[in-house]
């Protein structure tokens, strides 16, 4: 179960300052646990790709039919 706690501290460390005792536990644990050593770079990678989603993007578009439906609905609303 310790890995669960350690990865939680690693995550928390991205968001806020860790207590000294927490930092120490992470350091010590990483000395002998390859999984948790791997965790930080993976986690950092996820942070980076999530931010990419924020970029304005129009790669996916609505179909012409869907747009027409929207236009009709708005037209009707505007007329009423």
């Amino acid at each position: 179960m310790n890995c669960e706690k350690i990865t939680y501290y690693i995550e928390k460390g991205f968001l806020t300052d860790l207590k000294i005792s927490e930092k120490l536990q992470v350091k010590l644990h990483k000395l002998y646990c390859q999984c948790c050593k791997n965790y930080a770079p993976d986690s950092d990678f996820i942070n980076q790709i999530l931010v990419l989603l924020c970029e304005e993007d129009t790669s996916e578009s609505l179909t012409d039919a869907e747009k027409q439906k929207l236009k009709d609905a708005l037209q009707k609303l505007g007329d009423s």
Binding site: L53, C54, E56, D57, T58, S59, E60, S61, L62, K67, L70, K71, L74, Q75, G78
Partner: peptide, 21 residues
């Protein structure tokens, strides 16, 4: 004079991509 069709042409894709993420 609001042209709602123009709204759709101009913003629908942008709004959709923003929302789907």
């Amino acid at each position: 004079n609001i042209d709602t069709s123009q709204w759709v042409d101009e913003y629908a894709d942008m709004l959709y991509n923003f929302a789907v993420v």
